[in-house]
Design a binder for these strands. Structure first.
Length: 573
DNA sequence: GCCGTTTTCGGCCCGACTGTTTTCAGTCG
């Protein structure tokens, strides 16, 4: 059992206990165990009970349950809970606005055990018969169901990438020498992905058989000589296509997409008396093969520079490729530091020293420690006194980190009326201030706009953190006048963040592109809550690449001194 | 369920919003 599977069991136990109305601290123990297991860099299954108990939050009971799971593949307690409630009940919990109490009520009063049951109950008017279920609550639930259906079958980029890596790794082991290339939305780096498309290049070597025999396969949807599809746990559909070497480039081009990009490229081929398909580029007149072995040869034959997959969205990249004006995109190695992270002082998992050491190991030359401010009570946000005390600790450590500059910062909440959560006097004493919205995300657009504009006016705000506060597949972006906020950011010299949290990626690619066009300066920050998450820069970089950004548009590609000089606080206001 | 210079029991998790309930329960971050 891998860490993710183990974590899932404990997550389910936590959810089921919540529905049961168990002790909140017990629930938290299971939930925290799920997080610790899921994030652990090594295989939990290899640890003996003593080693397990050394993990924070794992005691005698949980260690025993982990061993039981590893040894038998099951956990009696989990099984007992699943006998009390059908497993489909957990999908109700994923609806925005529905929590454990509501799920318990729906189940006990109406026998609702799935989202489908819930939809039926709403249609029948049975939901309204329940205590606390009025018209507005019902409308909220209807909307949550719609949102869920819209996102069904889609997965976060990072998760999709991990699943694809696992499948590719397995196939490489099974069929040595075969070349495997993930294509589709994954190769383009889209923030969420539907299917996983993988190309296998080469002669028939039994790769299809190995693929459908992959142990984790839940269901084989299709199996053939050149194409097979399977479904994996978690709702991932994976398509494998076998392609001869001479069609490698054509297949990569064809299956990488996007649809809009391919239509434009094929149209261009037709205009030049050629046709393009997944096998190659051919002349229409005599069906002569012009290109196909490499993507470069195809684009070149159409008078285009090779276009990075991140840009293949039909957003003007073809014109740029023709004019040879494609941007040189930022890469992960361009980044020199990370300007947003949390430690155990608030809701981070690792302490200051550990985070600093991990950042140094990653090759960063500077990091900013930016805890939450007091308004975020649940995260243990800091008031003025604790903020300054923490800043002093960070600065004390700064001198002792060879080659790593530590900046003392804060992620300060933007309150409902646009005021900041800490005084100007406090903010002025820090090295960097990120201002972020964490509450009241559903205010009227005009109100949110005013709120953000007011926050940007504070002279000590350097960065607007996760500007839309969206959560992918979970919650839409806040609605506000993006143009007005970007103009204000330019006017005041405030940078906007591309937040690398897997379910944020906020700014999105399209907003980051807009920000760049409007002259807004950007930073790519992990918002890491553990050393592991410091590695999430690649996803923000991917977002930036899709926005067409080069290293010069991103502040934290500069060295520490230059970057600091560019922060707003160091400019005339 | 975990944890312990507050140590084997009793803390641990707080504030605000929403909708509906006329005094509060549920959800969210």
């Amino acid at each position: 059992m891998d860490n993710r599977a183990l974590a899932q069991v404990f997550g389910q136990i936590a959810a089921l206990l919540e529905i049961k109305g168990e002790n909140a601290f017990k629930i938290r123990a299971y939930r925290s165990a799920a997080e610790i297991i899921g994030d652990h860099p090594e295989a939990i299954a290899k640890l003996d009970p003593t080693q397990l108990r050394e993990l924070p939050g794992i005691g005698k009971d949980l260690a025993a349950k982990i061993r039981e799971l590893v040894e038998t593949g099951e956990c009696g307690y989990h099984r007992e809970l699943l006998q009390e409630f059908p497993p489909t009940i957990l999908e109700l919990l994923r609806l925005q606005g529905i929590g454990p109490k509501t799920v318990a009520l729906l189940y006990s009063a109406l026998g609702i055990r799935s989202v489908d049951d819930l939809s039926t109950a709403i249609r029948d008017g049975r939901l309204r018969t329940l205590k606390g279920m009025g018209a507005k609550k019902e409308a909220l639930i209807v909307k949550a169901i719609e949102e869920r259906q819209r996102d069904e079958g889609r997965h976060l980029l990072a998760h999709t990438s991990a699943v694809a890596d696992t499948v590719v790794g397995y196939l490489r082991e099974q069929v040595p020498g075969i070349e495997l290339i993930p294509v589709g939305s994954l190769r383009r780096g889209c923030e969420t992905c539907g299917d996983i498309d993988i190309l296998a290049i080469g002669a028939e070597t039994g790769v299809m058989e190995r693929f459908v025999d992959y142990p984790a396969v839940e269901r084989v949807l299709a199996r053939g000589a050149s194409k097979s599809s399977v479904r994996l746990p978690g709702g991932y559909q994976v398509d494998l296509r076998l392609v001869p070497p001479e069609s490698r480039g054509a297949a990569m081009q064809y299956f990488t997409g996007s649809k809009a990009h391919n239509i434009a490229v094929r149209d261009r081929a037709i205009q030049r008396g050629m046709k393009l398909n997944e096998y190659g580029l051919y002349t229409i007149a005599d069906d002569r093969r012009v290109a196909g072995e490499t993507e470069e040869s195809i684009y070149e034959a159409l008078g285009l520079a090779w276009i990075d997959p991140a840009l293949r969205e039909g957003r003007g990249e073809i014109d740029l490729a023709q004019e040879r004006r494609l941007p040189a995109l930022i890469t992960e190695s361009d980044l020199r530091g990370d300007l947003h992270m949390h430690t155990t002082v608030t809701d981070g998992r690792d302490d200051l020293e550990t985070m600093a050491a991990a950042a140094r190991a990653l090759g960063h030359t500077y990091i900013a420690i930016t805890e939450h401010s007091q308004a975020l009570a649940m995260a243990g946000g800091l008031d003025e006194r604790r903020t300054l005390e923490h800043a002093a600790r960070i600065r004390a450590l700064n001198g002792r980190c060879d080659g790593l500059t530590l900046l003392a910062g804060i992620e300060c909440d933007i309150l409902a009326d646009g005021r900041l959560d800490l005084t100007d006097d406090c903010l002025a004493q820090l090295d960097i201030v990120i201002a972020s919205v964490h509450s009241q995300l559903t205010q009227e657009p005009a109100q949110i706009t005013d709120r953000l504009l007011r926050a940007l006016e504070c002279p000590w705000v350097d960065v607007l953190g996760h500007p839309t506060s969206r959560r992918l597949l979970r919650r839409d972006a806040m609605r506000f006048d993006v143009e007005a906020v970007m103009q204000a950011a330019v006017r005041h010299g405030v940078a906007m963040e591309i937040n690398c949290q897997l379910e944020r990626l906020d700014l999105s690619d399209t907003y980051a592109r807009l920000a760049h066009e409007r002259g807004v300066r950007l930073v790519i920050s992990t918002d890491a809550h553990s050393t592991l998450e410091l590695r999430h820069q690649r996803w923000g970089v991917q977002t930036a690449r899709r926005a067409g950004l080069g290293p010069e548009q991103v502040l934290n590609t500069r060295d520490a001194a230059t970057m600091q000089a560019l922060l707003r606080r160091n400019r005339p206001h």
